[in-house]
Amino acid sequence: GLAGAAGGRAWAAPEELEPNTWEEITTYNNFYEFGTGKDDPADNAHMLTTSPWTVTIDGMVDRPGDYAFEDIMKKMTLEERIYRLRCVEAWSMVVPWTGFELADLLDLAGVQGGAKYVAFETAMRPDEMPGLSSPVLDWPYVEGLRLDEAVHPLTIMATGIYGRDIPNQNGAPLRLVVPWKYGFKSIKSVVRISLVEEQPPTSWNRYAPNEYGFYSNVNPQVDHPRWSQATERRIGGGLFAPRVPTPMFNGYGEEVASLYAGMDLAENF
């Protein structure tokens, strides 16, 4: 169990996780707004203006509005979280994020009783994001979580890596990190967070509903139609890197399995 810290704060950096290097984390990215190649984001993301930045929080909240990034940062408590990151493409990394719990941000806006889901949206700026000119996905990129997933203490908004500001290619200035789900759920460069009653659309699910489910929990027993999810390759192992088994919920089962009690996870993939 990679995440299985007995007692105390189970979500705080399990000892045995050794983070990938800064270079690995910041040069091998999926961020299709900057191109579909793994090195496109590192090459192109410098074009994105991340300051000033505002996040619109709206929908079923007591205090809807545009929240300036600096104002959010003044109110949040930053901490380091060393998390495994498992991409749906069957590779993985370990990233030392800096960030704050999404629950704290949602408290800032005051979630109303009827809200059941949280919808997220990435910035869409054709002048600063060359990838938007190709119709890979319907832009802007959107994601969503069930409210209980969103307020789970493992779910954070990351603003840094290795204690430095998060680079643009990794989702500056703030991005979601949901470590027990495939990486594409952890939406980058967030500009809107909406509390809603109905399950919101998500980009990859809209593109190929048979390949990418709403939940997209890391699950070695449910294969992607085009490849197995039973194993993964840790980035950084070079040309002869072995495949290693993928743990259920990416190793965070102890903390999150209860969220899905009684659900058929093959059906709700």
């Binding site: 270079e23 590779w91 390759r233 040309l239 890197a241």
Partner: peptide, 15 residues
Amino acid sequence: LGLTGGLGVEPIEAL
């Protein structure tokens, strides 16, 4: 290139 890092941090897929 794959052996010396020239194919990036995931050389297997790149190769």
